[in-house]
Amino acid sequence: MSANDPKQRLTQHQQITTTRPQPTTKKPQLATLRRLPYNPTMPTPPQPAEQDPRVYFAAERTFLAWIRTGLGLMGIGFAVSRFGLFLRQISAVESHLPARTTGLSLWSGVLLVALGVIVNLSAVYRHVQLIQELSSGTWRPGRVSRDAVVLGLLLAAAGVAMAIYLMLVR
C-alpha cells in the first residue's frame, strides 16, 4: 500500500469510530478494570457484619441514643420532684398555712430518675454484649430489643397513670 492510499489517510478518530470491536467471550481481568471514583450511594461489596465498620458505628449511635434517653428521664424526674416542692412553697407563702401534700410528685420524680439510671445501666450492658457478639461472629440480625419494649411499656403505663391522676384531681 502506498502513502496515497485512502485507507491510510483516515485519521485516528475516523479509525476508532469506523472499526467495531469484535465480541469476546473472555471476562475482563480485575487488573484491567478502571477504578471508579468514590460514590457513597454505590453499594459496597458484601462483607460479614463483624468486619463492616458501619455496624460498629450503628451500634455506637444506638448506645448513645439510649444514654440520651436515660439522661432525659433523669432530668424530667428531677424536675417533677422539684416542681412539687415549688408548689408546696408557693401555697405555704400565700396561705401562711402548712401545705397539704400527697408526696406524689416526689415519688414519681424519684421513680423517673431511677428508671433513667436503669436505662443507662441497661444500655451499657447491652452495648458491651453486642460488641462481643459482633467480634465473635455470633450476632443475629433482626432481634427485637427487649429493653426498648420494656421501656415503652413502662412509660406508657406511667402516662396512663398520670392521665388518670390529672382527671381525678381537678
Rank of each mutant, 00 (worst) to 15 (best):
S2T: 09
N4W: 12
K7T: 14
Q14P: 03
T18R: 15
T24A: 09
T24G: 07
P28E: 15
Q29C: 06
L30R: 06
T32V: 12
L33K: 14
L33Y: 08
R35Q: 07
P43G: 04
P43M: 10
A49Q: 07
Q51A: 12
D52G: 05
V55L: 03
Y56T: 04
F63E: 05
F63P: 04
R68Q: 07
T69H: 09
T69P: 01
G70T: 06
L73C: 05
G75W: 00
I76E: 00
I76S: 00
V80I: 12
S81P: 00
R82G: 04
L87S: 12
L87P: 01
S91D: 13
V93W: 07
E94C: 06
E94Y: 14
E94W: 10
S95G: 02
L97N: 12
A99T: 08
T101A: 12
G103Y: 10
L106I: 12
W107I: 11
W107V: 09
V110M: 14
L112W: 01
G116T: 00
V117D: 05
V117K: 04
V117C: 14
N120C: 13
S122K: 02
A123P: 03
Y125K: 08
R126H: 09
H127E: 05
I131W: 01
I131L: 15
S135H: 13
S135G: 13
G137E: 07
G137R: 13
G137C: 07
R143C: 08
D147Q: 15
A148M: 09
V150S: 05
L153K: 05
L155K: 04
A158P: 02
G159M: 09
G159S: 14
A163P: 01
R170E: 08
